[in-house]
């Protein structure tokens, strides 16, 4: 079956019916025009002995398996991570930052993925309240225009945020929870309909925000200096090293032109308000 993520297409081979159901849930409304796929991927059952004792799933990108096999109950999460891996390991025609991309008024805010940033919860929250989530993991930046491109992907929720999101949005489309993955319990929530995705266009980045979740704190906003932001962004890019000078130029332009902030927050509503101010036309 084909998975259409907008910028990338995957040709998936699997016999796991639970995975196929989740794929249908998340990507089912995407148009499958007659276009070539970028990657041939597969979820294979592990080795023969393993099919009965602790069944495993092995992600395959064409003829290679980048990860060690994982329990088959985590198959859908493995698929989503595997798709990220395919893009990150092969894409050098665009600049890839490990960051969430949140868009409103045709302006993007990117949140680099530092541990403890809570960017996925934030992405899901904003995605279901009027913002367009271009990605919760990967900012895909066009090298020539330096604008960020939309991806048609779900947001990866972890642990408590799964129930939290369910309580905010009882009707949200969420895949079954994969328990005890290397990141804890994981589920994917759909934040874009294909109809909505098709309206999205490449947009400029107006702010880089490094959020930090801190229990019981007021919203505190620090201005970040360009040198620090440069360091953080270049370290958080998937292909900075391969793109070399091209990436250097993009990051240098980004920190010169965008607002740079570090934010401590405990209430998502307060953070959302700040984000709204950042994208006022």
């Amino acid at each position: 079956m084909q998975i259409n993520c907008g910028q990338y297409r995957f040709d998936l081979t699997t016999t796991d019916s639970a995975v196929m159901r989740s794929v249908q849930q998340v990507y089912g409304d995407a148009l499958l025009a007659d276009a070539p796929a970028d990657f041939a991927i597969g979820l294979d059952p592990g080795l023969w002995l393993r099919r009965w004792i602790k069944p495993q799933v092995n992600f395959r990108c064409d003829q290679h398996s980048p990860f060690k096999p994982l329990p088959s109950s985590q198959a859908y999460a493995v698929l989503e991570w595997g798709m990220n891996w395919c893009i990150a390991a092969h894409e050098y025609s665009r600049f890839l930052l490990h960051a969430a991309v949140l868009v409103k008024n045709n302006t993007a805010i990117i949140c680099p993925a530092l541990p403890g940033s809570g960017k996925s919860t934030l992405s899901a929250y904003l995605g279901l309240s009027g913002w367009s989530v271009y990605s919760d993991e990967m900012a895909v930046i066009d090298i020539d225009s330096r604008q960020v491109l939309p991806l048609f992907r779900p947001v990866c929720l972890k642990n408590n945020s799964i129930d939290l999101l369910r309580s905010w949005h009882p009707n949200a489309v969420i895949t079954p929870v994969c328990r005890d993955t290397q990141k804890g319990d994981v589920a994917h929530v759909k934040v874009l309909s294909w109809e909505h995705y098709q309206q999205l266009i490449p947009v400029p980045i107006s702010a880089v925000v490094f959020p930090k979740y801190k229990h019981d704190t007021e919203l505190v906003i620090y201005q970040l200096d360009q040198l620090d932001a440069f360091g953080q962004l270049s370290r958080n890019a998937f292909n900075y090293n391969v793109l070399g000078e091209t990436a250097f130029d993009i990051v240098a332009a980004l920190v010169s032109n965008a607002g740079l902030y570090q934010v401590e927050y405990s209430e998502l509503t307060e953070l959302a308000q700040f984000f709204d101010e950042l994208v006022q036309p």
Binding site: L47, L49, R50, K68, P69, A88, H98, Q182, F238
Partner: peptide
């Protein structure tokens, strides 16, 4: 390796632990 899966012996990790 075929019997147990080679990764039992030579653990291979994904390049990015945040995923």
């Amino acid at each position: 390796d075929q019997l147990f899966g080679k990764y039992q012996f030579a653990p291979k990790r994904p390049p990015n632990q945040h995923w």
